[in-house]
Nucleic acid binder design. Structure first.
Lengths: 147, 147
DNA sequence: GTGATACTGAGAGTCGTTCTCAATGAAGCC
DNA sequence: GGCTTCATTGAGAACGACTCTCAGTATCAC
C-alpha cells in the first residue's frame, strides 16, 4: 500500500505490533492498550491509538468493525480474508473464502460504483456455542438475520 | 420477525418511523434525532435512541455499521439487501444482490459455524465521485482495500 | 554540537450512546 | 368516573471510545 519508509520503528510501535501479531482474537484498541501496558507500562493510550491508526494506514494491520456496535477491532492478518462472528460469545474467526470476481463485476455494473474492495462478515453460532447452547443475547435482527 | 403486538404506537415512535421511511440516505441516530425534532420539537434523544433500538428489535428497521468507524446507521428497508459505500462522499446505496446460498453453505461447512446471516458492504467510488474525482479521504486500507 | 523534526505521555475534550429517575399518560378493572 | 398498574417519556448525568493539544524527549541530517 503506501510507502513503508518514513516510519520510525520506536519501541512503543514495536510493542503494539508485537501484541497485534501475538493475538488471534481480534482485540479492540482498549484491549491492545491493556496488553501493551504489560510489556511497556509507561505507554499512553494516545500512543496506542495513534500507532494502531498508523499501522492500518501503512497496511500493516486491518481495522474491523464487526457490526456489533462496539469498538473497532484490529487484525495483524493483512491477507484478504473475511470473518465469521459468533452471536453467542462474540468471538470472530478468520475465513479464507473470497467473494467471486464475477459477483464483484456484477455489483459494479449494476450500481455504477468503481468497486475497490468489500467487507463481509457472517454471523451465527460457533461450534462451541452450538454445543453448549450458551447463547446469551442472540442480537436478533441486528443486521441481516434470516438470510 | 418477533411479534408486532406489545408495541404501543405513540406519536414519538410514529415520528421516528416516518423519518426513517422518508430517508433514503441511511441516517445516523443523531441525524434521525435532528430530523424528528423538526416535526416533534419536544422529543428527547433518549427516546429516539430507544425507539430506534425498538424498531430494530421488532424487525421494522435495520441497523447498519458501514465500516467507516462512525456511528450506526438506520434503514427502514428491511428486505434482504447489501450496501455499496462511496469512499469519496461516504454515501451508501442499497444493492439487491444476495450472496449465493452455495457460498453460505461452504462457509458453514469450513468454519463449523451455524450461519444465520451475513453483512456485506462493497466500497469504492460512486458514479458522481468518479466523474468529479472529488475523492477527499479515500480511507485507504480501512478494511479490505485492493480486493 | 546544533537545529529540525518526529514522537511521546498526560490529560482534557468530544462524540455517540446508555442509564437513571421522576413525571406523564394510556389501558384495564371495578 | 375513579383507581391502579405499567409502559413510555424527557432531562440530564454518566459512560466508553476515541481524538486533540501541548510541552518534553528522542532521533536524524548536517
Amino acid at each position: 500500500m503506501t510507502d513503508q519508509t518514513d516510519l520510525r520503528l520506536t519501541p512503543q510501535r514495536m510493542a503494539v505490533l508485537e501484541v497485534l501479531r501475538a493475538a488471534d482474537d481480534h482485540p479492540t484498541a482498549a484491549e491492545v492498550y491493556e496488553r501493551v501496558r504489560r510489556a511497556s507500562p509507561g505507554i499512553g493510550s494516545a500512543t496506542v491509538y495513534r500507532t494502531l491508526a498508523l499501522l492500518v494506514s501503512t497496511g500493516r494491520a486491518l481495522e474491523l468493525t464487526l457490526g456489533d456496535g462496539a469498538a473497532a477491532r484490529y487484525d495483524a492478518n493483512t491477507r484478504r480474508h473475511d470473518h465469521a462472528v459468533c452471536d453467542g460469545c462474540g468471538r470472530a474467526v478468520d475465513l479464507d473464502h473470497p467473494v467471486p470476481d464475477g459477483m464483484m463485476a456484477e455489483i459494479a455494473r449494476r450500481s455504477g460504483f468503481a468497486i475497490t474492495g468489500y467487507d463481509l462478515q457472517f454471523r451465527g453460532l460457533c461450534p462451541d456455542c452450538q454445543g453448549s447452547d450458551r447463547q446469551t443475547t442472540p442480537s436478533e435482527g441486528a443486521l441481516h438475520a434470516e438470510a
